[in-house]
Design a protein around this nucleic acid. Sequence first.
DNA 1: TATGGATAGTCGAGATCATGGACTAATTTG
DNA 2: CAAATTAGTCCATGATCTCGACTATCCATA
Lengths: 141, 141
Amino acid sequence: MASTSEDELIETIVGFFRETDGLFSATSRPLGLTPQQAQMLCFTQHLQPSFGELAGLLHCDKTNITGLVDRLEKRGLVIRQPDAQDRRMTRVHLTPEGEELTKRFQHAFNSALTSRLRDWTAADRKDLLRLLRSATTALRG
Amino acid sequence: MASTSEDELIETIVGFFRETDGLFSATSRPLGLTPQQAQMLCFTQHLQPSFGELAGLLHCDKTNITGLVDRLEKRGLVIRQPDAQDRRMTRVHLTPEGEELTKRFQHAFNSALTSRLRDWTAADRKDLLRLLRSATTALRG
DNA sequence: TATGGATAGTCGAGATCATGGACTAATTTG
DNA sequence: CAAATTAGTCCATGATCTCGACTATCCATA
């Protein structure tokens, strides 16, 4: 396996990672959210994840999730909801306010992103989406 | 852009970002480094950045860099070096120990990544590299 | 059915990360 | 030379993150 092109791929991935992180910060902080909070809200939008599932998605210890959810719940953006099947579990749901703020974040992030990618062809955007999705499952597995 | 594909693009980017971050954590912590420390060492390897340049590269406030460098310097991985041209500036250099640890980190990250992408075709790798590189400069500008 | 063993979430301690405001020293500008 | 800028530091405050210990609940199996 050619080591130079592998190095190149990694350097590019790291660079993309840093820029994405910067865009997350710049987008979330004006809305009063930390980047971690914004990411958590995005994950909570379509699933109603348990604490353990959130820990897996965010790649952090489960003890970290407690405080994260505490702060979001105190602001009325999410609520804890007991799981009907397993009474050990608690699921996290967005409140209407949380839903609204999440959409605001996504819209702001998206417009920042599209303005920066405005010169891209539709085909390149489609390819990027496909490859990122594929890379994500590859990294996850 | 349609709102459903908006969500999809953002969720994919968030997912990829989280997986990259997870790989960073899993690689750096066994070496006794936080992800932020590992990234700073990588940036310090080829340039000798000033504090302000590091703040720009890492997308954080300059006041944050002071403590970050303090902790790395206390461990003997970097040293502060005054800039000859401008006596306000301090440049960060890797020590030999820092150089060695940085290379260990990069090797570990590299092998973790390549093992996860081993099933990818050469064409997909090439496309991902091209699109990520292009996206990175687009986000940076 | 009883009893371990595994799992889900919480709590506390301690370190790191991150921001904003105020400060000093050095440089640049007018 | 005076004023404005820039680079780094310090302080206070809050958020993130890990680790170990703990309780409650579920599950497997004898």
